[in-house]
């Protein structure tokens, strides 16, 4: 299966789902002649049509696709994304999600330290004194800036329940 066919199919699914959700928007007498669902439904139709065109394009003219795709990429290096790229991105996303999950449990500073450690190691830094120092100094700095200086109520985690403070 070609990538743009899959993309088109997913987009078509989004269009249908979005239409369905838009149809469920409550009708209010205050919303005027277009209604709160007016633009959303229009968008759903447009997206549906465009995703069909996308599928048709890639089915009908298989050869021209990569050239067209590379023509107007805003940042260099975005084109030709491989399967490995997706996998590595997923891995990094997992680290990020784990951070959000442990944040309320471990508290801000500790989670920030672990995040720094994980990302630095993800990008090839070997485990050792240097990364540990980086992570702990970074966590302390983050705490100083956001909690001490700016007074943001970052999650404290389970630490206060230990009664050390």
């Amino acid at each position: 299966m070609k990538r743009s066919v899959v993309t088109g199919a997913v987009l078509l699914g989004i269009a249908v789902l979005y239409w369905y959700l838009a149809d469920g928007i409550p009708k209010s007498p205050m919303s005027g002649s277009v209604g709160a669902d007016g633009l959303p439904k229009l968008l759903a139709i447009c997206l549906g049509v465009l995703s069909l065109i996308l599928i048709a394009q890639s089915v009908l003219s298989p050869a021209s696709e990569p050239a067209a795709a590379a023509a107007d990429v805003e940042d260099t290096g975005d084109a030709e994304f491989t399967g490995e790229g997706f996998f590595l991105a997923l891995k990094m996303l997992t680290i990020a999600v784990v951070y959000v999950l442990i944040l309320p449990v471990l508290g801000y500073a500790a989670s920030a330290g672990l995040l720094l450690l994980a990302i630095a190691m993800f990008f090839g830094r070997p485990f050792g004194f240097q990364v540990l120092a980086f992570a702990s100094v970074g966590a302390v700095m983050a705490h100083l800036v956001f909690v001490t200086l700016l007074g943001v109520r970052m999650p404290t985690g389970f630490w206060p329940s230990l009664g050390w403070f």
């Binding site: 987009l11 979005y18 928007i25 409550p26 209010s28 205050m30 919303s31 005027g32 709160a36 633009l39 959303p40 968008l43 447009c46 997206l47 465009l50 995703s51 065109i53 996308l54 394009q57 021209s64 050239a67 067209a68 795709a69 023509a71 107007d72």
Partner: peptide, 27 residues
């Protein structure tokens, strides 16, 4: 060569902007 994809991106953006209270009726 990018016009279809550009329009799709714009529509996705507009869809994201419709999340929340309706600007006219508040639903």
């Amino acid at each position: 060569g990018q016009i279809v994809k550009g329009l799709i991106a714009a529509i996705l953006g507009l869809m994201l902007a419709t999340v929340g209270s309706d600007p006219v009726s508040g639903v």
